[in-house]
């Protein structure tokens, strides 16, 4: 699929920005990069915010790779987690450092024996997750056969209500998992926010690579906050 967007000369750079937990850091970083983000700080219900030098497209985090891969946005900011899960053709340009979290496998405290007992008799482990692609790749690599149940939220509920034996989820501090009596048993992979570009825009619009260079410098200066 290809996005149909007019391509007039001198149009502003189109930057996709994720709503939610990455939004505030994304805006701060773009501002530190010298972009006018004033209108972006309180967008209200606006989903497209225009300033003199950029047009910001505000989207759900999981939709950012779609906007960028299909060329609706020239570049954008997205979590590594959603990039892997989407598996779309975008250029991963800079690790921005913020939004750091990790994918983990967790199970209900004290159920390890039960889980392996069930796996022995039934042959599979049931895994609940929002990230079926990452989950499948992880267990495939370890040679464990799993049945994946895709849920859209509150993954930590799954072992408590008997839908799954274990969960694969992202966590920054582990608090939510602990509060729901889940114990981390394994790390899958780390994630953080990335600056991504459309493969054509990266090669044909020098503004994208210039912004990437600036963001890389800023992130290198303070890898913790990306600022």
């Amino acid at each position: 699929m290809i996005a149909y967007r007019e391509s007039e000369e001198g149009r502003p750079l189109r930057i996709a920005v994720p709503k939610g937990s990455l939004f505030a850091d994304s805006v701060r970083l773009l501002q530190a990069a010298g972009l006018d983000t004033g209108a972006l700080e309180n967008p209200g219900r606006q989903l497209i915010v225009r300033t003199d030098d950029a047009e910001y497209i505000i989207g759900k985090p999981t939709d950012i790779p779609v906007y960028v891969a299909y060329g609706a946005a020239d570049c954008g900011i997205g979590g590594k987690d959603v990039l892997i899960e989407a598996g779309l053709d975008v250029v991963e340009l800079v690790d921005l450092g913020f939004g750091a979290c990790r994918f983990v496998v967790a199970e209900k405290g004290g159920t390890q024996a039960e889980v392996s007992e069930r796996a022995r008799h039934l042959g599979v482990v049931r895994v609940a997750t929002k990230y079926p692609v990452i989950t499948q790749a992880h267990f495939d690599a370890r040679g464990i056969q799993v049945e994946i149940v895709k849920l859209n939220g509150n993954i930590e509920l799954a072992p408590l209500i008997g839908i799954a034996d274990v969960v694969v989820d992202i966590t920054a501090t582990g608090t939510t998992l602990r509060e729901n009596d889940l114990r981390i048993i394994e790390d899958v992979l780390p994630s953080s926010a990335r600056f991504v570009g459309n493969p054509v825009a990266v090669r044909t619009d020098p503004r994208v690579s210039r912004l990437a260079d600036t963001l890389a410098e800023l992130s290198a200066r303070d890898p913790e906050a990306g600022l």
Partner: peptide, 11 residues
């Protein structure tokens, strides 16, 4: 080689 047209997000 790849060929690009401005505004088209794919080669």
């Amino acid at each position: 080689v790849e060929a690009y047209a401005p505004g088209l997000g794919v080669p």
